[in-house]
């Protein structure tokens, strides 16, 4: 039998993960305002305007607001999130790639 060795584990310490509840869903989108949030990365504007076009064609009773974030996706954007909370009912957020 080979000699047994004792070695250290090389990993760091991960954070605790606390469960988070999803926001309650809507019963319908009709008559509601859906923010379509553009993360402004790799042609995401074209992607999200296509999403907006789908709603206009298939669910015209839904009001959509195309909303580019205030800076780049690597920065938090509380002003935009607050606007959506106050003026919107739901959100679709997308990135290109």
């Amino acid at each position: 039998m080979s000699a047994q060795m004792v070695v250290h584990n090389p990993m760091g310490y991960p954070p605790e993960v606390a469960g988070k509840a999803l926001a309650p869903r809507l019963d319908t989108l009709n008559g509601r305002t859906v923010y379509i949030v553009d993360c402004r990365f790799d042609d995401s504007d074209i992607l999200l305007k296509s999403v907006q076009a789908w709603f206009a064609e298939h669910m015209p009773a839904v009001k959509t607001v195309y909303k580019p974030i205030n800076s780049v996706y690597t920065r938090d954007d509380p002003a935009t999130w607050q606007e959506i909370k106050e003026k919107g009912d739901a959100a679709i957020i997308g990135v290109g790639h």
Binding site: M1, S2, A3, Q4, M5, V6, V7, H8, N9, M11, G12, Y13, P14, E16, V17, A18, G19, K20, A21, L22, P24, R25, L26, D27, T28, L29, V34, A90, I92
Partner: peptide, 27 residues
């Protein structure tokens, strides 16, 4: 955006991971 949430959606996932200081002895 419209389908109701279930219990798992409302609870999320809570867990912790330990990093043992040493590995199990071995060759």
């Amino acid at each position: 955006l419209t389908q109701p949430l279930n219990d798992e959606d409302r609870k999320g996932l809570t867990f912790s991971r330990a990093t043992p200081r040493l590995c199990e002895p071995a060759s």
